[in-house]
Simulated assay, not measured.
Amino acid sequence: MKIDIITTGNHVTPESVKNTTVIVIDVLRATSVIISALKNGAKSVVPVTSVEEALETKKKLENVILGGERKAQKIEGFELSNSPLEYGSTAVYDKNVILTTTNGTHAISKSSAANKVYIGALLNARAVSEKVAEGGDDVVIVNSGTNGQFSMDDFIASGAVISEMLSIRDYELSDVAKTALLIYKAHPDFLSYIREARHYKVLMDLGLEEDIRLCLHKDLYDIVPEYKNGIIKLNF
């Protein structure tokens, strides 16, 4: 079995993920938000790619809350932004969260041709690795990226996931997967690497240091969200 990485959501095609299991990673911050919401009792997370689609989807569901961002800031009229700190049980318990973000929900949607699509981040690196290793598919880790470009934060998180997967069973790594693994091993504190990322600096300029601190907490949660038929849940 093989592990490969697609470095931005924009590069995902149905053919590139066909007959594989995909792990979508947007560590700062969409997949960290999804994991946090479901850990704190959300019934589901429905990822959509536009504000208009979010508003239309809201009409079809009950007990809904709208979350997301554009340019890393809360969308006007939405209840929540893209901060995992906002998705506590008081806000999301037993609710259907409709989420739209610049990068992460786009990458999730584009990965739908895979056999299975799991949601990963540093928050659940070990758990998602164990889940994926149960299967027999080749694995593609989709980095959401930032505005269609490579994102350092997603890449080192991919290395963390790959390291965990290799501790469970053997895989053949592509060159890009090997590079992510090497970067992870060279920066076990994460921050020494991620602080050089463009997206990190954008979030810091917006005063979102607490978000970053949470998102870099490896293996805080042991849950594995799965995307299926347009919805993300813990159990189907």
Score class of each variant (00 low, 15 high):
residue 54 A to W: 10
residue 62 E to L: 15
residue 58 K to F: 08
residue 74 K to T: 14
residue 67 G to M: 02
residue 66 L to E: 03
residue 53 E to R: 12
residue 65 I to S: 02
residue 60 K to M: 12
residue 71 K to V: 14
residue 76 E to W: 05
residue 64 V to G: 11
residue 67 G to N: 06
residue 51 V to A: 04
residue 77 G to A: 00
residue 86 E to P: 03
residue 67 G to V: 08
residue 61 L to T: 04
residue 76 E to L: 10
residue 62 E to N: 14
residue 98 I to Y: 00
residue 49 T to P: 06
residue 65 I to V: 15
residue 84 P to K: 06
residue 90 T to Y: 03
residue 96 N to L: 09
residue 60 K to V: 11
residue 54 A to C: 00
residue 59 K to N: 14
residue 64 V to E: 13
residue 53 E to G: 05
residue 48 V to A: 04
residue 87 Y to W: 09
residue 55 L to I: 13
residue 47 P to Y: 08
residue 57 T to S: 11
residue 75 I to T: 09
residue 45 V to M: 04
residue 79 E to L: 03
residue 62 E to W: 04
residue 49 T to K: 06
residue 49 T to N: 12
residue 79 E to G: 08
residue 62 E to F: 06
residue 81 S to A: 12
residue 85 L to V: 04
residue 92 V to C: 00
residue 91 A to L: 06
residue 83 S to W: 03
residue 48 V to Y: 05
residue 71 K to W: 04
residue 71 K to A: 14
residue 62 E to G: 14
residue 58 K to P: 09
residue 98 I to V: 13
residue 94 D to W: 01
residue 66 L to Q: 08
residue 95 K to Y: 04
residue 96 N to R: 14
residue 62 E to H: 13
residue 68 G to I: 06
residue 87 Y to D: 00
residue 94 D to Q: 09
residue 72 A to L: 06
residue 47 P to E: 01
residue 97 V to M: 02
